[in-house]
Amino acid sequence: MLQTSILVIFFLTGTLAGIFLSNIPALKRKYIIKWYAWIMMITGIVILLFTIAWSLSSVVENEPQSAGMSLIVFGVPGLCLLLFTKRILIKTDTNI
């Protein structure tokens, strides 16, 4: 059960990372993103992937407090970082 769960968690996080990476060219075409915005966005995505992995593995190990705390301590700041980056630093490319 544990082995299967670990495989599922890695598959899920890998899939999400792959979706993000594959959409980078589309993001570059549609938006004007400065280098520091890229760093913030990638940091936010990495934090969210880490959060998903931690919380799912905590659920598998029957530790609800660890799962909840990881969503709050890592997930909320990660989401804040992404949304802040989107709102403030990413502009739509009007030349499209």
Binding site: S55, P64, Q65, A67, G68, M69, L71, I72, G75, V76, L79
Partner: peptide, 17 residues
């Protein structure tokens, strides 16, 4: 206070998100 039991740990992050 990071004090809670059981289902609260799933409800709280859901509310915040």
């Amino acid at each position: 206070s990071f004090q809670g039991t059981g289902i609260i740990w799933y409800i709280l992050p859901l509310i915040l998100l």
